[in-house]
Amino acid sequence: MKNNKGYHIIILFCLCFLAVANVNAQSDWQAPAEENEKLSPFLFDDDMVLEGRIAYENSCTSCHGTPGQDDFTPMSPPPGDPAAEQFQAQSDGSMFYKIKMGRGTMPKFEDAFADDELWNIVAYIRSFNEDYKQELPNMEGVVIPEYAMSLSFDENVDKLVVKVFAEELPQPEVSVSAYVMGTFGKHLLGKAQTNELGIAYVDVDPTLPGDEEGKVNVMVKATKEFARAKVEKHMVMAKPTERHSAIEGRHIWSTDRMAPIWLKITFFVSVFGVWFALLFIVFGLRNIKKAREEA
C-alpha cells in the first residue's frame, strides 16, 4: 500500500507537468467570441487615460513593466509589453476580458476593478498606439439618459448624499463613486448604488482634513450602461485645518528676539550672576588695600 502511494504521487507530478507544458504551448490566448466583440461604452478621453495610468502603475507595472520600455518581467508565458504591436493587435473586448478574467500567472482583476475602471486601463494601454481608432458601439435606437446630480452632506451621520436624476426623475441602480480632489491626485471616498429614490449614500471619514473652513473639493461620478455624468463641488464636510506658521512663537531656531524665555533667563542670569561675583571680588580688592594696617 505504502509503495503504491509514492507511485501515485509521481504520476500526479507527471500529469501536472503535462498540464503546465500544455498551457505553455498554447501561447496565444483567445477571448470567447462574444467577449471579443464587446466595445467600450465610453469614449476614451484624457481623463480615462489618466485614471487608467494610475491603476496600471499600481497593479500591472510589476509584471508588464512600463509600456514601451519592453521591461516586463521575464516569465513563461511572457506577460508582454502593452505597447507592443502583438499586444495591441487584439480587440478592446479581448483586452477587457483578459484583464477581468486572467489566466495562469496573469491575475484575475474582476474583483479589484469595476467595469468602468477596467475600461480606463484599456484606454491607457491604447494611448500607446498611435494608429488606434476607437470603435464605438452602434447607438442607434439607444436612448442615453442625461444625468443630473445633486450633492449634499448629512452631518448627523457623516454621509455624502448623492441624488441622481434624469429629466427630474430619480434614477435607481446607478453606480456612484465619490472622490476628494487633492493637488496631486484624488482620494476615493467610497462607492455606492442609488436606491429606488435615486439616492446613494457614501460614508465620509469625519477626520478627513479640509481647508480652514473644513471645505473639500468633492467629485462624484455616476455611471450606468452608456450613461455617465460627473460633478465637482466644494463642500463643507471635513475637519477644518488650522494653519500655523513654522516660526510662530518662541523657538530655538527662531530669531534672537523670539528665543525661548527659559533660555534667555538661564543665559542672562548665569552670565550676569558670574560677572556680578567677579566684580564683587574686583571691588573687594580695595578692602585688601585698606586692611594693610593691622587693626
Binding site: 580688592l285 585688601i288 588695600k289 586692611a291 594693610r292 594696617e293 587693626a295
Partner: peptide, 9 residues
C-alpha cells in the same frame, strides 16, 4: 595693593 601680611589681608 599695599600688601602688608596682616591677618585681615
Amino acid at each position: 595693593l599695599g600688601w602688608n601680611n596682616t591677618a585681615k589681608q
